[in-house]
Amino acid sequence: MSAPLAERRTPSGLVAGTIAFSSVDGPGNRFVVFLQGCNFDCVACHNPHTIPGRAAIDGDHQGPQRLRVPDLLHQIGRAAPFIRGITVSGGEATLQAGFVEALFRAVKEDPALAALTCFIDSNGAADPMTWDRLAPLTDGVMVDLKSFDPEIHHRLTGQGNADVLASIRHLHHLRRLHEVRLLLLAGWNDDPALIRRTGEWLATVDPTMRVKVIGFRLHGARPHDPPLVEPTAGRLQEAAAILRATAPFDIAVI
């Protein structure tokens, strides 16, 4: 049996959690929806409970909830005077593209919320058709590039990076690429030669794009053998300098 008609009109999403105010998920202050489920299995994931079969590390997360668009609109409405927009993150938001599309459409059509921008924080594994479908309702996408090297990318995430690179190029083409994020793990993906190759490739997409160099932090990540290591501040600055020497990127180091 198909779902009742009313439910199909207002699709529901499997939501891992929401945050009313976030200053780390795009421009300005933002309401963030974390969607449950991911097609990557990243060793460095800070929200492992959103990966099927993985448990939370800090243990205080309730299980995922099935929420409908109006439920979220109500929550967003409370925060609306204080935020610049909303961001859907995860997990991998594009796995529930239909729900994301319905949520963004509802925000844009609600007179009280229409000024809010709608962003997606993605692992980049979606196909071009998904981006084409979301682009008209999406103001910007932040894409993680776990590694430019396909082999290292596979070890870090369990998947190859061809889709991620294609997404970065395609989103730039659609004028929806807000920034590329490079999460660096000491000894895994912070080799200077690899950073240089990454920069050279990014420059072929857009030599002035926003690039965020983010140091891996142990908090929230699951144990690993051998233990994962946070990169030093110096190492992050070194990576930024290499990128800067490659192209006039707009670089932030976190």
Binding site: N29, P81, F82, I83
Partner: peptide
């Protein structure tokens, strides 16, 4: 009170301040 993540994104505090005054 706000946590230190706001330091890298002062625009977020601007949004909150303007919202608070608006409310």
């Amino acid at each position: 009170h706000v946590d230190e993540t706001a330091v890298r994104n002062p625009g977020a505090m601007v949004d909150i301040i303007k919202g608070a005054l608006d409310q």
